[in-house]
């Protein structure tokens, strides 16, 4: 682990477990994400993808296991230290999770104003610049999030995630609920933003088109474990029946869906 020849992974998970009541959601996750790498975690609904992200962010406390960010154990952090650590992170939520009581620019500038105590005027300038970076014009800034379409909300969410230039960005199903063209626009933006910031990115998705576009490396999660990792190019010949079934979207295969005939 401390071998100096191997670069320190940005994020390293070891044996992370989390269960809700009798339901084991994470069953010993082992995963490493290198610095500046874009990892895409694929897996079906309810396989623990979101829970894993929330454990890394500390929104949920794992029952067991270790989560290291930049070589620092994060599972035992106190509130203050955790807040400091979260400065490194940005996250795009599945439903964008914009604050509907605030205007669009206030949403984008939120981390700057509240987290870094920047003056509002200065934060507004940055917010408008970031909105420009995701292809939104300055007049959108004064609208309220409820007035925007789903695709625009996602873009605002992306602008908010990159506003205070985080080292690590999480994307929670960035293309879910968007039409294919808007999905591709968002994918392009993600690739662009991650490259511009030089950030480490972790994306969870079940949209294979998105995964192919964003990923340097792909990991597949199944029944609370990482069952396969490999380069994005190897995904079509992974040699793993589960991955193969998922990538090609077949109903027949080792992964059984819980469906019952009526």
């Amino acid at each position: 682990m401390t071998d100096p020849k191997i670069a320190l992974p940005k994020i390293a998970l070891k044996g992370v477990r989390k269960q809700f009541g009798p339901k084991k959601v994470l069953n010993g996750i082992d995963l490493e994400v290198g610095k500046g790498e874009s990892l895409v975690v694929i897996g079906g609904s309810g396989t623990g993808k979101s829970v894993m992200l929330k454990c890394i962010l500390g929104l949920l406390a794992p029952d067991a296991g270790s989560i290291m960010v930049d070589g620092v154990e994060t599972t035992k952090l106190r509130t203050r230290e955790r807040e400091k650590l979260l400065h490194k992170f940005g996250m795009l939520f599945q439903g964008a999770a914009l604050f509907d009581s605030l205007k669009v620019w206030e949403n984008v500038a939120f981390g700057l104003i509240q987290g870094e105590h920047m003056p509002r005027a200065q934060a507004k300038e940055i917010a408008i610049a970031k909105l420009g970076a995701v292809g939104l014009s300055p007049d959108v800034a004064e609208l309220s999030p409820a007035e925007l379409s789903g695709g625009m909300q996602k873009r605002v969410g992306l602008a908010r995630a990159i506003a205070d230039e985080p080292e690590i960005i999480f994307f929670d199903e960035p293309t879910t609920g968007l039409d294919p063209i808007m999905a591709d626009v968002i994918n392009e933006l993600i690739v662009q933003c991650v490259k511009d910031l030089g950030a480490t990115a972790v994306t969870i998705t079940h949209d294979m088109a998105s995964a192919r576009k964003i990923a340097d490396r792909v990991a597949m999660i199944y029944e609370g474990r990482i069952i396969w990792t490999g380069h994005a190019g190897d995904i079509d010949h992974s040699g793993n029946a589960h991955v193969d079934q998922f990538v090609h979207g077949r109903a027949e295969g080792p992964i059984k869906m819980q469906v019952r005939a009526l």
């Binding site: 929330k54 962010l57 500390g58 929104l59 807040e83 400091k84 979260l86 400065h87 992170f89 940005g90 996250m91 939520f93 999770a97 914009l98 604050f99 939120f110 981390g111 509240q114 987290g115 908010r160």
Partner: peptide, 8 residues
Amino acid sequence: DALSTLST
């Protein structure tokens, strides 16, 4: 959750 990730 978004509040937390924005260090608030």
